[in-house]
């Protein structure tokens, strides 16, 4: 099934080449946001701000929620600082 993945900042590099900041991604039915992050190659030891359909998805739920067709998964750097 297809989902939409949006990223920002330095995380763009994990999307397929030429995607810019977002892309459609083919994933297995029954997959979780955590599995998609693994599929894209995001280092597991880093922290991310993860959004599902516009809502923040806390770390504890990323391996539990099952994605549906056309879901929009947002993967962003953990914080903006200075």
């Amino acid at each position: 099934m297809q989902i939409k993945v949006k990223t920002g900042g330095l995380l763009r590099r994990y999307l397929p080449e030429g995607s810019g900041s977002q892309c459609e991604l083919d994933v297995a039915a029954g997959t979780t946001p955590l599995a998609v992050m693994g599929q894209l190659g995001l280092p597991a030891e880093d922290q991310y701000l993860v959004m599902l359909n516009g809502e923040v998805l806390p770390a504890t739920q990323r391996g539990e929620i099952v994605l549906s067709e056309n879901d929009e998964l947002g993967l962003f750097p953990p914080l903006k600082g200075g």
Binding site: M51, G54, V56
Partner: peptide, 19 residues
């Protein structure tokens, strides 16, 4: 402050702005 993940002005997304 830095520990709070709260609404961002332009998008409403809850972000941490450690500034």
């Amino acid at each position: 402050g830095d520990v709070a993940q709260g609404p961002e002005l332009l998008t409403g997304v809850k972000e941490i702005h450690a500034i």
